[in-house]
Each structure stands twice: as structure tokens, then as C-alpha cells.
Amino acid sequence: MRIILNIIWLVFGGLWLALLYVLAGIICFVLIITIPFGIASFRIALYALWPFGSTTVDRPTSGTFTLVGNVIWLLVAGIWIAIGHVVTAFAQAITIIGIPLAIANLKMIPISLMPLGKRIVPVDEAGNYRYGYAPDPYQGAQRYPR
């Protein structure tokens, strides 16, 4: 089901949304001082391509600079991007097929508001990250330092 929803999402807006996030990332890289925001924009662009089956979790190692960066992002771009996601979600929710797409659009609001200090992971592994365990293919689950 995730594959079908991801294909429908890609055709009905996901590709354009991802391209806009890539464009924002390129602009952030050109401005040099905003490179961390560009990296976050590229991360969101990948999430915008295939949102079904993925979720966001907080990175426990985030610090003060992440908080300051998120506040700057929120004031400069985050609010406007979130408003765009809400408007698009309302437009998609008009049809029955569009309701899951609208939910996916609403699911992207938290990461569009504060993208720094977030990690995009498969839904199946999200519990490991939320409880401080990260899967390591070589040593099993490792606990993050707190």
C-alpha cells in the first residue's frame, strides 16, 4: 500500500514539492552562511518524494546551535512553508483519494517548521530512535549518549 500511495503522492504534487525544497537548498548553499539550512532542505526534499513509510524523529545530540537555527528558520521561512502545506492539504482533502495525501502533507509540517536536529527514518525503525537506540549493522543497537 505504501508503494501505491507514494506513487500517487509523487504524481499529484510530491515531485513539485521536492523540486521546490531542492531549489531552496541550492539557494541556501549559494548564500554560504545558510548551508545548514540547505542540508535540511535537501533532507526534506527526499522526505517529500516518498513520505509514506517514513517518519521524523529528534536527534538526541542536538544542541543550542540547533535551537537557534530552528528559531531563525521558523521566523524566515518555516511559517510560510507550513501555511503552504496546510493550504495544499485542504485542497487535497476535497477528494477521497486525496485524504491520505492531505494527511501526508500535514505530517510534513513539523519538519518544515523546525528542520534542524531531525532525522528521517523508516516507520519500522522509529521506535528504536525515539527510545535512544540506533540500529548499527555491525554491533547491534547502540545507545546514544545523552
Rank of each mutant, 00 (worst) to 15 (best):
A93V: 07
Y138P: 02
G53Q: 08
A141R: 13
I97Y: 03
I97N: 03
A91C: 06
D58A: 07
G98D: 10
I7M: 07
R146F: 09
P60W: 01
L23T: 14
M108D: 05
M108W: 04
A126Y: 05
I109E: 07
I99V: 11
G13P: 05
T34G: 06
P145D: 01
I81P: 00
A91W: 02
Y133P: 03
L10Y: 02
G78M: 02
R43Q: 12
P110K: 12
L31K: 12
L15N: 11
I111P: 09
G69N: 04
N6S: 11
N128P: 01
A77S: 13
W80E: 02
I4C: 09
G117I: 03
M108H: 07
T88H: 03
T55E: 10
A91I: 05
A93F: 14
T66G: 06
G69H: 03
I81A: 04
G63Q: 00
P115S: 12
R146S: 12
A77R: 12
V57D: 00
L113C: 08
P122T: 13
W16E: 11
T61S: 10
Y144L: 09
V123E: 09
L116T: 00
Q92D: 01
P36Y: 02
G13R: 11
I39F: 14
Y133T: 06
I83R: 00
A134W: 05
S54N: 10
I26D: 12
I39E: 09
T64A: 00
T88K: 00
T55G: 07
A91V: 04
L75G: 08
I99R: 13
V22F: 15
D124E: 09
A126P: 11
A89V: 01
R146E: 10
Y129M: 01
L49K: 01
S62V: 02
I72M: 04
F29E: 13
S54W: 10
L17D: 06
T56D: 05
W50I: 06
A77G: 08
H85Y: 04
K118V: 01
Y131E: 14
I72D: 01
P110N: 14
G14F: 09
F52E: 08
W80D: 01
L20R: 15
Q139F: 15
F52S: 11
I120H: 06
K118C: 00
V11C: 07
L31M: 15
I99Q: 10
L75P: 01
I39P: 06
A134T: 10
I81C: 02
Y21G: 05
G98Q: 12
G132V: 06
P135L: 05
G63E: 00
P135M: 05
L17C: 12
P145H: 09
G53P: 03
Q139G: 13
A24P: 03
I94R: 15
